[in-house]
Design a protein around this nucleic acid. Structure first.
Lengths: 246, 246
DNA sequence: CGAGCTGTTGATCACGATCAAATTGTGTGG
DNA sequence: CCACACAATTTGATCGTGATCAACAGCTCG
């Protein structure tokens, strides 16, 4: 029960901060927590969680084929609800930690019961799922119609919307962010090879659009947001001869 | 009310047939239908629906960028629940008819109320959303890690799981299916150009894996399902020298 | 008929994958 | 502390392939 105490404190803090769970009543929380447990996992670890709530770190839904190709279909970070259940066919993939992460593992049955009994939780769940599906659709659209550069910059903006990536940065610094993923994982997320990630970042660097820190490879500074935004929106199509000198 | 009568009949028929809505009580249906209307739309038409239920035909969630590139992020067909609502940011795309289609347009408020009041409907909704999200994840994974051939064959199998594509075919014919999409739309769905679709189909044809009907261009016959299945699962990687003669 | 759209085929090319190797980073054990 | 193994990243050179450009055939519909 000491453990449950700890869960409650964590949850309340995270839920209150997030956009969707702040209107939740206390009774709804208790019902959800009854059979839940906080999981602390390290990078690379595979999680059995089917339903969960992200507290910190990043986990991803990973798919692969026989010859080693790997895809990160969807990313989950602080405040996200994980729901990997499936009824029509077995889920083709697994949940892996992309950084050290903390999350609440929720018993599916308790989750369903909570939705049934607490209307406010049901509302919050629906909203959360709608938003996450929207993000998944955005990402899918990116994969279909954008070039590698565009996809990468688009991903940078996606990360920029995560509050965590700005933690530990100087007060007035609105340009920088910490990449929450290894470049290898970023590559598997945007659908290119790590070599391409490396080369593309270098090119953006040479064009003066971004800046990186040799001491902290995760740190990226978005110098020209408006131009980067244009690229993310499709401003760097194939065959474009955009060799801006220096 | 004559119209509502008609809606009820349609819904009952569709819901009973589908995998998720068959356990629904009659009371739950009435609540949902109060402010709903059946929409009949033709190919190419843009729909305003935010929440809806597919009765027949195919509609897709379409995204595009300035220079004409187009993506079909997600497809909806008979029995699917459409939910395009979003709270974190405006939805970046629109719903278009990819064939003549019929669907029920549901008032979002009525939908929410129905979930709140009828637990059985809430359950059905959650299951339905979980399955559709799973399919969306599958497709996203395909886009990231598979080659164009693999993605195309994978899409063929996806369509093969739709009951409608086998309608109007001879009794014992388990090989054939009607492509529910134009090749152009198929291209925008699997993330290649129409020319590539054409060439790839021709190659599969030459390898004796599929068969097409000159009279009915939508008809495709999957001759060697096991080999096609292997391809869909990643059996045709880049650089593979698989020139099977004839 | 011609306008417009879809689909097919051919030729060329840009670009990202692939192969290969060097470099840096990280954790482990001596 | 260093030595070592191992993973992640970067850079370079080459190659395969799907996009691109272009032309044409088939079809529908006014």
């Amino acid at each position: 029960m000491n453990e449950h105490q700890k869960i409650s404190a964590d949850i309340v803090a995270t839920l209150t901060a997030g956009p969707h769970w702040q209107d939740l009543e206390v009774g709804s929380l208790d019902a959800l927590l009854a059979k839940s447990a906080v999981i602390e996992a390290q990078r690379g670890q595979v999680l059995q969680t089917r339903i969960g709530l992200m507290l910190s770190g990043v986990v991803g839904f990973e798919t692969g084929v026989a010859d080693g190709r790997r895809a990160l279909t969807e990313l989950f970070h602080e405040g996200d609800l994980i729901d990997l259940r499936r009824h029509d066919r077995p889920s083709q993939g697994r949940l892996v930690c992309l950084s050290d992460a903390r999350l609440i593992n929720i018993e599916p049955a308790a989750f369903d019961a909570c939705i049934r009994r607490h209307a406010d939780f049901g509302d919050a769940f629906v909203k959360q799922i709608e938003d996450q599906t929207g993000r998944l659709r955005d990402h899918t659209a990116d994969l279909v119609l954008k070039t590698p550069v565009e996809r990468m910059v688009s991903a940078l903006f996606e990360f920029d919307r995560w509050p965590e990536v700005h933690e530990g940065l100087p007060e007035g610094d609105r340009l920088s962010l910490h990449l929450p993923l290894l470049r290898k994982d970023l590559a598997d997320y945007v659908g290119v090879k790590p070599e391409t990630i490396s080369r593309t970042l270098r090119r953006l660097l040479q064009q003066g659009l971004i800046e990186t820190d040799p001491a902290d490879t995760a740190l990226v500074r978005l110098l020209d947001r408006s131009r980067l935004r244009m690229i993310a929106n499709g401003g760097a199509p194939r065959g474009a001869r955009a060799h801006r000198s220096t």
